[in-house]
Design a protein around this nucleic acid. Structure first.
Length: 799
RNA sequence: GCAGGUGUGGCGGAAUGGCAGACGCAGCAGACUCAAAAUCUGCCGUAGGCAACUACAUGUGGGUUCAAGUCCCACCACCUGCACCA
């Protein structure tokens, strides 16, 4: 016993055989049903693979391997998301060109991925920084531009002072830069936007058609943040001007006692001459501008603001004059940047009113507005024609009707999601294919000139003026306008990290095509992705962005399905052995390649799938790895006991139960229980001391998606035909998963008192008679009820 | 505040309303060994008992049911995401 196999030698041997036989290559068509399994391709960082990558890829690897054995034509590709800031920052530090670093890192990553033995189709490998690839990223951008979904605006944007780049909302969640985690500031800047908000409703509707986990859908719904309300115009007193606000509760209009504008609201500058306290206003605005996003939104703090003296507004429903304030609790980026304040029924307005001494007029009965704002339902009061209405749906509808009638308000929809700030003032990204011409305005680079390649640069430092390093390359900047032929200048900013990953799954369908982003027939054949696994951290970033681009490509007829991913799943984090998130500074990082070297790739993959619930965060345990290694070592010896007891059929029922359990659990990503079932079977085989060759063949097949190398080795040892990776997935016989004689529990009043062995088809009377016999000494009271659930339990209810 | 989720041994975790704790780890005992490691075998929720057994146990408190970790109500704790979003 305890025979060891040399995992390093075995794993290298079978990796070579697989490559030789080309068994993981996908065919673009054919009679087999197709399966497109996808995992999030990595950013090829210098640090190499993380154990998190192994967990993320192992799930779809197991599923893809099972699908191949089930007779599917499987596409399971891998590539590299190779543009991005880390390579550029490293280049600035060392002077090495990002392309050189990236190439090196990709080679390193590829070697590592191959050493783990994932069943990727390496022929379809791609890198987003390859001009043959980003040609098509630029092509899609030009299509977006052509359709009016690209625009430039001068607004407040998220800016990372450390990375010196503009960030999208998705890139600055929680007020922190996605790359360096430093505080993001708000800065006024002219930037390129993609109109993702035009697709907000389509992105919401699409969620109903796909198989995503509920929490993933909820998070997207939340992020998009659709709200229905109304835009209402408030006239300014003595000025021919109106202040437009957005509200979800237009029915509380009679309770408005003041208005609030965001400090950046343009009306302030327009009427600054009328403001007797403009100095005070200016001072407040400067203070606000200095605050970081974090200070302005995260800290629960006292309301601040300044009353505008010199201008006021008129409440459109009762003609009352109401004061206007500026305060930073109102955001310029949401709604119209101005609100009507109803302190009786909105807590923020209530706090502001208390501090600044504004009136609080209740219009909905209920609560105690002396203590806090009341936001529940109730009778409308103090509200003219709305008085007496009892639910908000009716009162909103009636008020809307009134406002529309008077031409001072209309229904409106708002989203929390903002348009996608799309340009980065950096070198290592796709050049934005636009040209600025004084005569013609902004013109797209002609399609036939794509790819617009990144010029070679020596200095990667972003310019102090906030321009990308490309702005310093005159030969790149200066060009001819494609429209008028006059002198023009190129856009010098590049696209964000997320551009290349927003469509890479399409390129995998046809990665070498130079006529189109992918061949139409191939796209039609492979898309949608059948199963996409990735991290929760990408739900409101990559997942939203790629769904947006794909939906756009659907709308212009490039792809056949509105949604790119039919099914989405996610893996839970692997924590350090101390239960903390792995990080270099904590020194709790586990290098997967150390595990491969010491215990083997089979053990590593088996362990990351066995360690716990696949979707949950689980701490790493080196002892747990050893446990999996022990199992594989025991499994490796099974060929020695084949047919030790000729004609033995004692394992048959367990075998069929295992086939059922493993087959079903893989589909639900319950890898931990699938592996547990195989460990149990292994224990039974050990106890039995013998296994038939056919039974072992089935066992090898079931384990092969998880531990493919040792399974190939054993398959060869027992003389299996071809490669086990290409063998047929075993089927179970339902009849054989049921035992003829079963053990069931006997309870008195729901408490276990005995167990009995009976035939699975035992009659009720027979079962109860046997049960009573087993517990005869305890049958002391009056039997009130006798319950028999076949195959489960007998319960005797006594008084 | 809003949304989603989780709570089970010393640990990771199993349980279509039907014998709670599968499987693995750790621990304990034994075998092998001069010895250790490795390996193999057995035990392993808590309390009481030599034992067979008994009582108590799935965050807390109620409820439904012959039967609840599982379903319902209330609460507590923790995690994740969003957040002065009007």
């Amino acid at each position: 016993m305890g025979k060891y196999y040399d995992h390093e030698q075995v794993e290298k041997k079978w990796q070579a055989r697989w490559e030789e036989a080309g068994i993981f290559k996908a065919e673009d068509g054919g009679d087999k049903p197709k399966f497109y399994g996808l995992v999030e391709f990595p950013y090829p960082s210098g640090a190499g693979m993380h154990v998190g990558h192994i967990k993320a890829y192992s799930s779809i690897d197991v599923i893809s391997r099972k699908r191949r054995m089930q007779g599917y034509n499987v596409l399971f590709p891998m590539g590299f998301d190779s543009f991005g800031l880390p390579a550029e920052n490293y280049a600035i530090k060392t002077g090495t060109h990002p392309a050189v670093i990236t190439r090196k890192n990709i080679e390193h990553f590829t070697d590592q991925l191959k050493a783990v033995g994932f069943s990727f189709d390496w022929d379809r490998n791609l890198a987003t920084s390859d001009p043959d690839y980003y040609k098509w990223t630029q092509w899609i951008f030009l299509k977006l531009f052509e359709k009016g979904l690209v625009f430039r605006a001068n607004t407040l944007v998220n800016y990372c002072p450390h990375c010196k780049v503009v960030l999208s909302n998705e890139d600055s969640q929680g007020g922190k830069c996605d790359v360096c985690h430093s505080d993001v500031v708000q800065k006024e800047k002219s930037v390129w936007y993609l109109r993702i908000t035009d697709y907000a409703d389509k992105l919401l509707e699409g969620l109903d058609t796909v198989d995503f986990p509920e929490n993933v859908k909820q998070q997207e719904v939340n992020w998009i943040g659709r709200s229905e309300g109304a835009f209402v115009d408030f006239k300014l007193k003595d000025i021919d001007e109106k202040l437009e606000i957005y509200t979800t509760r237009c029915d509380t209009l009679f309770g408005v006692t003041f208005m609030v504008m965001a400090p950046e609201h343009p009306l302030i500058d327009k009427y600054k001459d009328r403001l007797s306290n403009f100095d005070e206003v200016e001072k407040y605005r400067e203070e606000c501008a200095k605050k970081t996003e974090f200070e302005r939104t995260q800290l629960v703090k006292e309301k601040t603001g300044v009353k505008l003296s010199g201008i006021s507004a008129i409440n459109p429903v009762d003609g009352k004059e109401i004061p206007i304030f500026i305060a930073d609790y109102v955001m310029m980026g949401y709604g119209t940047g101005a609100i009507m304040a109803v302190p009786a029924h909105d807590q923020r307005d209530w706090e502001f009113a208390k501090k600044f001494g504004a009136d609080i007029i209740p219009v909905i009965e209920g609560g105690n507005i002396e203590e806090e704002a009341y936001s529940g339902d109730g009778n409308m009061i103090n509200s003219g024609f709305l008085n007496g209405l009892t639910n908000k749906k009716d009162s909103i509808a009636k008020m809307l009707e009134y406002l529309e009638d008077k031409g001072i308000g209309k229904k409106g929809v708002q989203y929390k999601m903002k348009d996608w700030a799309f340009n980065r003032q950096r070198y290592w990204g796709e050049p934005i294919p636009l040209i600025h011409c004084e005569k013609c305005g902004v013109v797209g680079v002609p399609y036939e000139e794509l790819p617009l390649t990144l010029p070679d640069v020596k200095n990667f430092e972003p310019g102090e003026d906030g321009n990308s390093p490309l702005a310093k390359i005159d030969s790149f900047v200066n060009c001819k306008c494609p429209k008028c032929g006059g002198a023009a200048k190129r856009e010098t900013d590049t696209m964000p990290q997320w551009a290349g990953s927003s469509w890479y799954f399409l390129r995998f369908c046809d990665p070498k095509n130079d006529k189109a982003l992918a061949d139409e027939a191939k796209l039609k054949y492979w898309m949608p992705v059948d199963w996409y696994n990735g991290g929760m951290e990408h739900v409101t970033r990559h997942l939203i962005y790629s769904r947006f681009w794909h939906r756009f490509l659907y709308d212009i007829g490039v792809v056949n399905t509105p949604e790119p991913y039919a099914k989405r799943s996610y893996q839970g984090l692997i924590l350090g052995p101390d239960g903390e998130k792995m990080s270099k500074s904590k020194g709790n990082v586990v290098d997967p390649m150390d595990i491969v070297q010491q215990y083997g790739a089979d053990t590593l993959k088996l362990y990351v799938l066995f360690m716990g619930d696949y979707g949950a965060a689980t701490p790493w345990s080196e002892n747990g790895v050893k446990g999996c290694k022990r199992f594989i070592d025991r499994f490796a010896t099974l060929a020695d006991i084949v047919d030790k007891k000729p004609g033995d059929t004692s394992l048959e029922s367990s075998l069929h139960k295992m086939i059922k359990k493993v087959s079903e659990d893989i589909e639900q990503m319950k890898f931990n229980t699938a592996i547990a079932a195989m460990m149990s079977f292994m224990n039974e085989v050990s106890a039995n001391g013998s296994i038939t060759k056919d039974e072992l063949a089935v066992f090898i097949k079931l384990l092969s998606p998880f531990a493919p190398h040792i399974c190939e080795e054993l398959w060869e040892q027992i003389g299996g035909e071809g490669l086990v990776s290409c063998a047929k997935w075993p089927e179970f016989d339902p009849a054989k998963t049921v035992d003829q004689t079963i053990e069931i529990a006997v309870q008195i009043n729901g408490k276990l008192r005995a167990t009995i062995e009976i035939d699975k088809d035992e009659s009720k009377d027979g079962a109860i008679a046997k049960a009573k016999e087993a517990i005869s000494d305890k049958l002391t009271g009056n039997v009130v009820k006798e319950i028999y659930v076949p195959g489960k339990i007998v319960n005797i209810v006594m008084k």
